[in-house]
Design a protein around this nucleic acid. Structure first.
Lengths: 221, 221
DNA sequence: CGGAACCTGACAGCCAGCTGAAGCGGATCA
DNA sequence: TGATCCGCTTCAGCTGGCTGTCAGGTTCCG
């Protein structure tokens, strides 16, 4: 999963980031609402860990804006023990879960995995795109009713496209999705994987925008 | 059995959890309706132990919702002595049994086992999957009409697949099923058991999704 | 037409997953 | 009580296929 961590306390932030990274997820850590909004506009996240008391405002405002624009990304609130009203308000505002500080890191892992499972366990929205039928949760794709096998990396990349159909995605954005934040990548890996996806999914599935990046074609494939 | 315990009193919850764990069952303990719903959406339980007075609502509401969506998981209600009307309403709402607090732990064990037996004695839905015939309640499997013997762990794992055919199940999900919530497991136990199941049930029964988990193939075995 | 951007076949290294084997502990039976 | 068995878990060696890289080719655009 790709997770956005919004937390302004350095020590806690590091601990949480390390734990979740160890669990095999990609974590982007930001320390203010402003940067959180930036990240949310450029990257599709699977989960948001949200502290409430932030230097430039209250986390619940972010949550409310998110839900107002129909973004249903799961949110887990990180809150101090004495802020009971915050917790209630958080759940009302559309949070999926909360953790009371100080919390155990294994507890954190458990909640994160639980959200992941819930997300995947939901009744299955099938996405139709031309001749493609995509089962996002179960990682299944059929093309003209024939199953298509994608490798882990291929799937990760394709998922990035699927979550923002029709939008222009820069190489950098796609790399960020494949390789946890900060991991540098040389060579033309993205091009190679786009090529592999085209071979498996159809030549016109992904459109090259010269000098800019790629875009998933939403009309015909 | 895998049991969901919904109880918001810390001491009682711990005692019940320990007792049932000692009896050889896997227990997930949650402390509110909200978390109970979460767990129910992600995990198939064999039994639910349900307290009625919960911080975020009344247990009977959960029970009613459960039955409304045709979930027939057995439910035992945990209720205080003076709430007679609750007990009656509970049985009307589809509970299978109730226990009056404070109750003896051995009494609890007895009821749990009783429900387990009743559950298994039910008229038997046979599941057919390719050349396999599965009798879920009685833990019996035939392959090409030949009986197949599974050990306890093998069965627990296979049951996890059977209850969510075709769905992608992560290692974590499968481990959660084999080892009660939170129990850490190292090494490649899941792989070993998948390997054994394949040997007994057919090579193609379980499909590996590299980097993601496993899936029961529902078409041909 | 020349250069830049992009595509893709090929390949070596590596790692996730598979499985046989062995140690261990609980259950069973003499 | 001691011997034996059986299932559970771990480990290590192996293998196939995934991955990242590069080079040579192709397309695009000024």
């Amino acid at each position: 999963m790709r997770i956005l961590l919004v937390e302004d306390t350095a020590g806690l932030g590091e601990a949480v980031r390390d734990q979740i990274t160890d669990d095999g997820h990609a974590v982007d850590w930001v320390q203010s609402l402003r940067f959180a909004e930036n990240s949310l506009q450029t990257t599709p996240y699977d989960l948001i860990l949200l502290d409430l008391m932030l230097p430039d405002g209250h986390g619940l405002d972010l949550l409310k804006r998110l839900r107002a624009r129909r973004n249903s990304t799961p949110v887990i609130i990180l809150t101090a023990r004495d802020q009971v009203s915050d917790r209630i308000n958080g759940l009302n505002a559309g949070a999926d879960d909360y953790l009371v500080k100080p919390f155990d890191l294994s507890e954190l892992s458990a909640r994160v995995e639980a959200v992941g499972r819930r997300y995947r366990g939901n009744p299955n929205p099938l996405i139709h795109l031309g001749t493609l039928e995509i089962d996002l949760h179960n990682h299944r794709i059929r093309r003209n009713d024939q199953p298509v096998e994608l490798t882990a990396r291929e799937w990760a990349l394709f998922e990035g496209f699927i979550q923002r159909p029709g939008m222009l995605l820069s190489r950098q954005q796609l790399e960020d999705r494949l390789y946890a934040f900060g991991a540098e990548i040389e060579s033309n890996t993205i091009e190679v994987y786009v090529s592999r996806l085209r071979k498996k999914l159809g030549r016109d599935a992904i459109v090259t925008v010269r000098g800019m990046g790629y875009r998933l074609e939403t009309h015909e494939i």
